[in-house]
Every structure is written in structure tokens, then in C-alpha cells.
Design a protein around this nucleic acid. Structure first.
Lengths: 227, 227
DNA sequence: AAAAGGCATTCTGCATGCAAAAATTGGACC
DNA sequence: GGTCCAATTTTTGCATGCAGAATGCCTTTT
């Protein structure tokens, strides 16, 4: 499931993505102890990039360190996804308000371009189209945060709120969901273009609440099937 | 100005704090190029801890990386402090709402303890008392975020929103400001204890807006004096 | 059987070496 | 004077070595 056409990645980034992915898919279990040695053996890399990846994942809250040499996969609360969506709603609604005031024509053009590409992939014909949609969606949201012109905000989203994997793991959005999502995006762009901060914020809020509801539902369904 | 009684810090943490401090005090100027070699010479450490410190500061937005080997001190927007306070308000108001619902008796006891200690240092007799107050204030806010029982939230605050240095650089709070701040803290604790989420959120909002106003004023004054 | 203590093993933090990539310099050419 | 290109130097990314700290095992004791 490691994407087929990764762009060139250096060892540290590889380590970061692989470990993160393994945590989110459960291949590395919650609370499991991690050692640099084992990981570097498993991934065929030296300890240095592993160290750096672990450092980053620790900052992001995926990995926890005890007092001594003990490093464990973090324990995630059951309502992890809801928590993240709530925080995203907080941050992204604020972002889109700023974006409505501060977005440049280039920002808006970029949003339009992403949106157009997403429309062309809907409904998704195959798995690849699905992947593209997910990536484009991430970029759409990221573009809005960037358009808010607050470096702190950007760092925030990049660091602690990237739910892509969580969502990707659980999500099977129906065609109806996708269409609604696209409509939201369309309306968000219009609101930004109009400089209507509150409008933009409201529709973003709805967008994320809808997304959260879908994800929570999917998680529940998945859990049920396991029994 | 490097605190006199640092607890034992490993090399990486030392590097992190020194570099960060040097950026925030302007000893390392905005846009200045940084190389691991020079920093490791300057700090008398090897490249490894420097590397790790730089990595973290990059994630936090204090340092920026261009395409190649070029690493620079980030350019900070003029309204940096306001931006941070706005984001803090977003995050901490949400945190304190959760805290009002989820705080344990231990959390509340800790808040009370910090609060008591702060009262005993007010008004601050000397520079050391001032430092203690600043540290205690940070801990107060951090405790609230922790009490929100959302690891993501905690990571967020730790990573991107630590304004202590910015504030410390510019702040000369008057006795009246300090007293008001303490009153806010007191009321926040009461609201949390009462489980009153909205109350807690409102007073926290006022608390941070007041703080922001003071800081902005101080920055303006400082800028004026420079002319 | 449980607890305590000492010993061997493992792990991390830091330093350093090396090759490849990037930046800089200097010179040729326009 | 400005621009392009190649040689040189610098810098990073990664691998590895080493000492000290932490962990876990195994024996001893109660």
C-alpha cells in the first residue's frame, strides 16, 4: 500500500512515512516499544534517519518517550478521529476567514485548478483516481491554510493535524458524499473570492462536520464487522 | 541571559534552546543563513545535536529550508505576536472548554498550586521573581491544555505556539496587569471547577485578548523608542 | 514464591567519516 | 559591465563507532 509513484524521497522522509504509516495501520501496535536498532534493521536504513523520523513523530504525538530509553507507539484515544476533526474545524475555519481577507488571485486560481482536477476524477474510476482525489483534497485544504498568510498556522497544520492516513484507512466515501464535498469546495472558493469571511467559515465548518460524521460512521461500521 | 540554573540538559536540547533564543532575541537575524558547521563550532557541539535542533525548529517555523542546502532564519511577519495570540485564543479557549468537562481533581489541585505560587511572587521583588512568574504562567496554561485530555491539542501547543520568548522579550507588565492576570487565572480555575465550559472559555478569551493588547502596546512603544 | 541486588546486554546520545549534492568562485566570452 | 560555464569548496545526508546510561535477566535471599 506504499504509493506506487513516490517522488524521490530521502532516507529520513522514507523512514518517517513508513513508520507513520505502520503506526496508523496498526502494523506497529499501540504501546509497542520501538528501538532505533530494530527499526533500522527492518527498514534497511542506518540509525540516523530513523532517529530523525522518530524525533518528528514524537513531536507530532504519534510516539511517546518515557524517562529512560523507552520509546513506545502512542496510545490513541478511541475518539481520535473526532478530536482531530474538531481541532481541524477550529483551525481551518479561522484559516478560511483569514484567507477570505488575504487570498491572492494566485491562491484562488490554485484552488480553482485543484477543484477542476477533482471534478474530472469524480466519480473515481479506479483506485488510482481515489488516491488522486485524496491527495487533491489534502492540497485544497493546505492551500487555504497557506492563503491565510500566517506561518504559525501553516506549521500547525503540517505538524499535528495531518489526518490523511487515518481518514484514508477508514474511508469509503460514497458518490453522494463526494459530490457534496465538491459542492462545499466550490462554495468555499466562491466565499473566499467574495471576501466573505463568515460565509467561508460557516461552509468550512459544515464541510468538516460532514466529513467527521462520515468517518465516525465508517469507523463504527468497521468495528462492528470485526466482531 | 541564558538562565542561570538550567536543569541538566542534553546537547540537543541545549542547542535547541540556544538557537531558538538567539533567533528570538535577534542575535541570529531574520533571513540569515545557518549552517550546521558554523553552529556546531559556535556552540561547541558536534553536528548531530545541531541537526536535531534545526529539524525541530524547522517544524516549528523558526527556521526555513530552501530547495538545496540553504537554511535560513525565518522571516517573521510584523504582527507575529498578534497572530500567535489569536491562534492561542482559538486553541486555548477550546482547551479550557474541554478541561471544564474533563479535568481531574489532580489537574485542579495543580492549577491551584501554581496559582498560589504566583500570588506569593506578586508583586515581583526582583528579576528572579519575574522569571518565576513567567515560567509559572506558562505552566498554568500548559496544565489547562493537558487537562483537555487531547494529545493532539497538547502536541499543538508544544510545537508551534510557545510564545514565551517573544513575550518575555517585550514584556514589562505593570503591577495592575499582573493583578488582572492573576484574577483571570483565579476565575478560570473556578470555572473549570464548576464544569462551566462557556464561562471558562469566555474568561480565557478575555485573558488572552488582554495579554495580546499589552504585548502589542509594548512592541509599539519599543519600536518608537528605537527611532 | 516474591523481592532484591548485581551483572551482562542493549540502547541511546553524541562524535566523526565519507560520498554526493549544492553553492561559490573565477575566468572566458559576449 | 554582464552572463554563462566549469572547477573548487562547502555543506548536507547518511553510516558507523564509542562511551555511558538504562534495561532486563539471573542469582541469591527471605
Amino acid at each position: 500500500m506504499q504509493g506506487p509513484s513516490l517522488p524521490k524521497m530521502n532516507a529520513t522522509e522514507q523512514a518517517y512515512h513508513i513508520i507513520r504509516n505502520d503506526i496508523l495501520t496498526g502494523k506497529l501496535e499501540e504501546g509497542e516499544r520501538l528501538t532505533e536498532t530494530r527499526l533500522s534493521d527492518d527498514l534497511g536504513l542506518s540509525r540516523t534517519p530513523i532517529r530523525e523520523a522518530i524525533g518528528r513523530l514524537t513531536l507530532e504525538g504519534f510516539i511517546e518517550r518515557d524517562k529512560g530509553y523507552t520509546t513506545r507507539v502512542a496510545y490513541f484515544p478511541e475518539d481520535e478521529a473526532e478530536q482531530i476533526y474538531e481541532i481541524r474545524r477550529l483551525v481551518e475555519c479561522y484559516s478560511v476567514q483569514r484567507a477570505a481577507r488575504l487570498a491572492t488571485p494566485e491562491d484562488i486560481a490554485k484552488l480553482r485548478a485543484i477543484h477542476t482536477a477533482m471534478k474530472e476524477d469524480t466519480p473515481p474510476k479506479d483506485q488510482a483516481a481515489y488516491q488522486r482525489l485524496a491527495a487533491a483534497n489534502e492540497e485544497f485544504h493546505h492551500t487555504i491554510v497557506t492563503a491565510a498568510r500566517s506561518p504559525r498556522l501553516t506549521a500547525l497544520m503540517a505538524t499535528a493535524l495531518d489526518v490523511s492516513m487515518v481518514v484514508r484507512t477508514y474511508s469509503m466515501f460514497s458518490q453522494k458524499d463526494l459530490q457534496r464535498s465538491l459542492n462545499h469546495h466550490e462554495e468555499i472558493i466562491q466565499a473566499i473570492e467574495a471576501g466573505a469571511a463568515e460565509w467561508a467559515s460557516s461552509i468550512m465548518s459544515a464541510h468538516l462536520l460532514a466529513g467527521a460524521a462520515r468517518v465516525v460512521e465508517n469507523i463504527a461500521k468497521t468495528a462492528q464487522e470485526k466482531e
